[in-house]
Simulated assay, not measured.
Amino acid sequence: MSKHGEYKVPGGKLVVVDFELVDGRIQDFHLSGDFFLEPDDALADIDRAVDGMSPNGTIEQFAEAIQAALPAEVHLLGFTPESVGIAIRRAVTGAAHWRDYDWQILHEPPVSPMLNAALDEVLTAAVGEGLRGPTLRIWEWDEPAVIIGSFQSVKNEVDEDEAAARGATIVRRISGGGAMYMAPESSITYALYVPGELVRGMSFADSYAYLDEWVLEALKTLGIDAVYKPLNDITSPHGKIGGAAQKRLGSGAVLHHVTMAYDMDGEVMAKVLRIGREKLSDKGTSSAQKRVDPLRSQTGLTREAIVERMVEVFKRRHGGTDGEVTEGEWDAAERLVEEKFKTEAWIRRVP
């Protein structure tokens, strides 16, 4: 049985593997791609190392076998032994690729932050149930909010008096991760709703960088030297730009959303977020602005122009057509706000 797998290393090169499965073992293994490898004959060493291995091996086991087979003086540029392991796992598990899908791109008018959070759950569920295809959505919101992670404590994270003074609603999202203070148009938030097949064979950590590689490319076209810092940060030499969070539903669908600072007021953020007072101080840095570096200062562009470039790069890399949230999805999200997101039981499920 012939197997083919591909993995684009975030910030690196394409790794391609082809092999046969014979009597429960990998045979006739061939690695290829647009990476760099010196010396040339190390490619054959990698092929021989994988030949005969079980297809059920872990990424780490494949990487260890490859590393052990490589000569002492070898240079791998644009890929790693682990990335070969990921490509093998994706071949074995039948992982999908971005272009296997017809992507929809949604950019609706501003709604409340709570409705945005509910929409993330509704649209992820719709993808998992096959009611909509994979989708990229740009958030727009009409009032300030403190968005907290699914497992965070309200009293530990939020100064509720400061939040109330600024008219900020507390919204608990369904994904984990940290809290953020979001004023309208101060940040760029997007969400991906994808089938689990797109990240099959990857670790949780690898999937974060994989799903955000397109946005790193978009930022680089704007002159920002953006890189991914595990587990879930997008950063640059001038400071942190944003962070990602994920939630995987029982259906296998994945919600992956990211908030990047455009023109955040670090001083206000440090007042509203309790933990933020320590995080934003950045080990003694006096100005919170130095911790979260806004996209506006690095590009000089409007928020709209940056979003436009992001969508342009996404379409060029992965395809996609402009769509809209259906009436049924809006209705479901509004019900979810009333039944879940707006309730004290949900907001304060971790007091």
Rank of each mutant, 00 (worst) to 15 (best):
L273W: 01
G243Q: 06
T259C: 06
I275N: 00
Q246R: 12
V258I: 15
E278D: 11
K283N: 08
I241A: 00
E267H: 13
E278G: 12
V272Q: 06
R277Y: 05
D265G: 10
A244N: 15
A261F: 11
G266W: 02
K279M: 07
K279T: 12
I241T: 08
I275G: 00
M269F: 07
Y262E: 09
V272F: 09
A253S: 12
G250Q: 14
K271T: 07
R277Q: 13
S281M: 04
G252M: 04
A261Q: 10
K283E: 04
L280Q: 09
I241C: 02
V254G: 09
A270L: 07
G266E: 04
L255N: 08
A244E: 06
M269L: 14
D263Y: 06
L255E: 11
H256I: 12
G284Y: 03
K247I: 01
S281W: 03
K283D: 04
Y262D: 10
K271G: 03
A245T: 12
G284E: 02
A253N: 02
L273F: 02
A253L: 03
M260T: 14
K271D: 13
K247D: 03
E267R: 13
G252C: 03
R248M: 07
M269H: 02
H257Y: 15
G266T: 05
D263W: 01
G243S: 03
G250P: 02
V258A: 15
I275A: 09
G250L: 09
I241S: 05
A245L: 06
D265T: 08
Q246K: 08
G266S: 08
L280H: 10
G250K: 14
G266Y: 06
R274W: 09
I275E: 04
A270S: 15
H256A: 14
A245P: 04
T259K: 12
A244Y: 00
G243W: 01
K247F: 11
I241N: 07
G276K: 01
K283R: 13
H257E: 13
G242A: 05
K283F: 01
R277S: 13
G266R: 05
D282M: 11
Q246D: 02
G276S: 04
A253W: 06
G266Q: 05
M269A: 14
D282Q: 11
T259Y: 09
D265Q: 09
M264L: 12
R248N: 06
G266P: 06
G252L: 05
L273E: 01
A270H: 04
M264W: 00
I241P: 02
T259M: 10
L273T: 01
V254D: 09
G242E: 03
H257R: 14
M260F: 13
G252N: 07
Y262H: 14
V254K: 09
K247A: 14
K283Y: 04
D263T: 07
L280K: 04
D263H: 13
A244D: 11
M260N: 12
Q246C: 00
Y262M: 10
M264S: 09
G276Y: 00
L249P: 01
T259Q: 13
